[in-house]
Nucleic acid binder design. Structure first.
Ligand SMILES: [Zn+2]
Ligand SMILES: [Zn+2]
Ligand SMILES: [Zn+2]
Ligand SMILES: [Zn+2]
Lengths: 280, 280
DNA sequence: GGCCGTTCAACCCGTTCA
DNA sequence: TGAACGGGTTGAACGGCC
């Protein structure tokens, strides 16, 4: 069908194109993907799905074998398996902004807007998102539309076990015994500021550590593509592309930019631990 | 300037539109349909009928010869044949919410309502006004979305809520590819030790129907992919603004959607035949 | 340009009521 | 029984920071 791309004339541009097209497939459902979302190549819908459901405290249930094949068509049919697949292909729920993060972001945006408006008063536009109604005795200055909602409150109970293990780490280790993973037990990880988080929410520090780990994971993505591919994620399309070996050097860099830089802690070991924890 | 693809896109869009208008016909009775219900294009009445009766344990009896032609007029006359037709054209009774699910949903709605009430204790419905200022005149009024938050804190067990879940793919996979998969009704394979649905047992024949639907679905899948692949995945990118109606193409879903005219599913073909008959 | 969150219309499931 | 409706979920499009 794609006769246009038949010519594989080693133009690196072309190669790259093929490569990129290969990677533009959601690892969850096979739909078209634009890039990474929460650390995995995924489509817009799976991105939204993951963001909406991964932090929910409730657990979906699949009345069958917890093995539903997720495709662009069937993805809506079983939330449980879809979410599980999201996790198994490497989406990281810790990357979802917490309520606080979101609030802060909103605040920042508002700030910027205000600044800009001040600079160009004539062009005033929408702006203020939360106007406070006076008729109600609201105490705080909090944006009213999103109540706090602690998703993690209580109920850590779930996830007792079962579920599939993330193939990612396993495959990683197995397929390429990366020497870079020789970690040594040390890791002080300065506790420093203690976060009053009641539970599962990772303090900033830890989060950045996770990011670090994620970075590594990403580095491995290309390998996964090469080795695992069709057999692992089962029947996602026919896929067939033969020149897999060609795409070695996927994605240039841009990996590090995600790291918030709040903490420069090079503690990869810990990161890995946490990551595995997370994956579990 | 890829006008060629443009044209193709156009054509395809057009075709799709025609198709979609054609498909707004209930596959069961020929009445006007609004969309999919329980995985098949069907009218409101057949939807209600199916929901009410598909899970009923009692058997209907055909007053005639089990061969009733179901039309918008005759659909009331024989429940037996109507239900059968529903199943044969691809409606899936597993998509009907279980009692448990419904209760959960009700509870959730109630919860949301309460929360909202609490937030806006004063009157309701002030949103009649659409403040859609674009240019200027910063009114200070904000859109104030009334959609609510997604993750509600603590719902314990969750459930599928509105979207249907179905193991379809799984079953499909199993039954189509591994014949050894002999699903025994007694063991729905619930990892959870507790009893899921009170009546989650699927008789064999029913299952085959599901599988057939799923098979169709999968066929559809590849069909869609082929079609979409070139024009949409190829250069969708910006896609430009254009009409809103144009976007619908990414959503191919469901079983017998755009089956051209030759379907691999005899039932659907038959349904279509009958349908045409009916229309006459 | 990548990747977050946000928005909103469409979809589809259940409920209600005549 | 079926038309009308309420509402949760989904996903495309978009805004915005980096
Ligand atoms: Zn996806
Ligand atoms: Zn499932
Ligand atoms: Zn009908
Ligand atoms: Zn009959």
């Amino acid at each position: 069908m794609d006769n246009s791309s038949d010519k594989k004339d080693d133009t690196s541009a072309q190669k790259k194109e093929v490569l990129s097209s290969l990677q533009k497939i959601c690892l969850v459902c096979g739909d078209k993907a634009l890039g990474y979302n929460f650390n995995a190549i995924s489509c817009e819908s799976c991105k939204a799905f993951f963001r909406r459901n991964a932090l929910a405290s409730k657990e979906f249930k699949c009345p069958f074998t917890n093995n539903c094949v997720i495709t662009v068509v069937t993805r809506r049919f079983c939330q449980k398996c879809r979410l599980e697949k999201c996790l198994s292909i490497g989406m990281v729920k810790e990357f979802i902004m917490s309520e606080e993060d979101k609030a802060e972001k909103r605040r920042k945006i508002e700030e910027n807007r205000a600044r800009k408006r001040q600079r160009d008063p004539d062009d005033a536009v929408t702006s203020s998102k939360n106007v406070k109604r006076d008729d109600e005795g609201d105490t705080g200055v909090i944006p009213l539309q999103d109540t706090v909602i602690q998703y993690d409150t209580l109920s850590t109970t779930c996830s007792p076990s079962s579920t599939v293990q993330s193939p990612l780490s396993n495959d990683l280790d197995a397929s390429l015994q990366s020497p870079q993973y020789n970690y040594t037990p040390s890791a002080p990880v300065t506790p420093g500021t203690e976060q009053p988080y009641p539970m599962k929410i990772y303090p900033i520090d830890e989060k950045s550590v996770i990011n670090r780990a994620i970075y590594e994971q990403r580095m491995m993505d290309s390998y996964i593509y090469e080795n695992v591919d069709s057999n692992m994620y089962g029947e996602t399309k026919q896929n067939s592309i033969s020149e897999k070996t060609a795409h070695r050097e996927t994605r240039p860099q841009h990996v590090c930019e995600e790291i918030p830089s709040t903490s420069t802690n090079p503690d990869v070991n810990k990161a890995r631990d946490i990551l595995q924890d997370v994956e579990r």
